[in-house]
């Protein structure tokens, strides 16, 4: 990364340059599992963003204190704490979303994006950059989840945020909200995402 480290760069890189999961190809498990409906996808994305932001801030602020040998353990403890906080808050205030996301909320702990950013970025950079990075990557992830879940919900159920948006006689393409549909959808999107920069660089 030759570019100067500025807050805006660190924030915006998560939207295209290293857009997860298409560019980083990390965090695929929740991507495949919870993107049946836009509501779930968005909820998962926001929860991940929250955890990512705060874990990045905390880890960046205490990075000098943590001994190298126990850094992963420390990161996991910090991340897990935020995940449980998210889980409890969601359970208390957004119970229906909590029910739908179910097991995938606790599994945010092992979402590779979070540990990956903690290890690759927050542990090496000052707080403000880490916060920008966490927020940017998190929002990029949210965006991707929103995108893929919108495709799956619209095609697979004919709805968007639960509202019917397709024409009346539309027969939902239920395959898209089943697990194999998620794999094929993700595969095609990954292929497209690889195609676009190839086309762009080819034009140059």
């Amino acid at each position: 990364m030759a570019k100067a480290k500025s807050i805006s760069y660190e924030f915006f890189k998560g939207f295209w340059e290293i857009l997860p999961p298409f560019r980083l190809v990390l965090g695929l498990c929740p991507m495949l599992a919870v993107t049946k409906y836009v509501e779930n996808g968005l909820g998962m994305g926001i929860a991940t963003t929250f955890v990512l932001l705060f874990s990045n801030i905390i880890i960046s602020s205490i990075k000098s204190v943590i001994p190298k040998k126990v850094r992963i353990a420390s990161y996991i403890v910090i991340i897990a704490t935020f995940v449980v906080i998210v889980e409890l808050v969601m359970q208390a205030f957004f119970y229906s979303l909590f029910e739908k996301l179910g097991i995938f909320i606790p599994l945010i702990v092992v979402n590779c994006i979070i540990l990956g950013r903690a290890e690759a970025f927050a542990s090496k950079n000052p707080i403000h950059l880490s916060a920008a990075d966490g927020l940017g990557i998190g929002l990029g992830y949210t965006m991707s989840l929103f995108f893929i879940s919108a495709i799956r919900e619209i095609l697979g159920a004919g709805t968007f945020f639960g509202m019917h948006i397709m024409w009346g006689s539309y027969e939902p393409f239920a395959f898209m909200i089943e697990a194999p549909g998620a794999f094929i959808c993700l595969g095609l999107l990954l292929a497209m995402m690889n195609l676009i920069p190839n086309k762009l660089s080819g034009a140059n």
């Binding site: 205490i62 204190v65 943590i66 001994p67 040998k69 126990v70 353990a73 420390s74 403890v77 910090i78």
Partner: peptide, 10 residues
């Protein structure tokens, strides 16, 4: 130091 840091964090 490792023990102390981890204990404190936990």
């Amino acid at each position: 130091r490792m023990v102390v840091v981890l204990t404190v964090i936990a």
